[in-house]
């Protein structure tokens, strides 16, 4: 076995152990882009359909519909800068925002958006589960 084969085998082992691949990062990033595309285009219903169920429910309080509430937040969005996928969880850093996603049977859905870092504490998110 040459060194290239050993490197490939080790990378495969790490990918299996960590469940991480570039294809997964790409699909998570696409889901975030679709969500912010809907927000940018003022398609509230479409944006809410890309939220995790509990995140959508969280926006539908006090008689306000999710489709209106999501647009009222004026989420900044931006271009994807960096994406991390670990298991069924993902974080997509955008130029003006950070979004967290969870992989459901139907695909990646947003569970946290409009998020700002708070040092050692969890991000504070406008949209959360």
């Amino acid at each position: 076995m040459n060194s290239r084969a050993i490197s490939l085998a080790l990378m495969s082992l790490v990918a299996i152990l960590t469940g991480c691949s570039s294809a997964e990062r790409e699909t998570a990033e696409q889901a975030a882009t679709r969500f912010y595309g809907a927000v940018h285009d003022r398609q509230g219903e479409q944006a809410c359909s890309l939220l995790a169920p509990s995140a959508a429910e969280g926006l539908s309080t006090g008689g306000q519909r999710c489709a209106n509430a999501i647009l009222d937040l004026e989420l900044p969005g931006g271009q994807p800068v960096d994406t991390a996928v670990w298991g069924d969880e993902a974080q997509v850093r955008l130029s003006r925002d950070t979004v967290f996603l969870h992989r459901f049977p139907q695909g990646w859905l947003v569970r946290g958006a409009g998020c700002t870092a708070r040092g050692e504490l969890p991000y504070r998110c406008e949209v959360t589960t």
């Binding site: 152990l17 960590t18 469940g19 991390a84 670990w86 969880e89 974080q91 969890p122 959360t128």
Partner: peptide
């Protein structure tokens, strides 16, 4: 070594689920 690699993956999934950085 296996614990450290898989533990990092498991820890990071938990971090992201709790809206924290990996």
């Amino acid at each position: 070594l296996g614990q450290s690699v898989s533990g990092q993956a498991s820890y990071n999934a938990q971090q992201l689920a709790q809206l924290e950085d990996p």
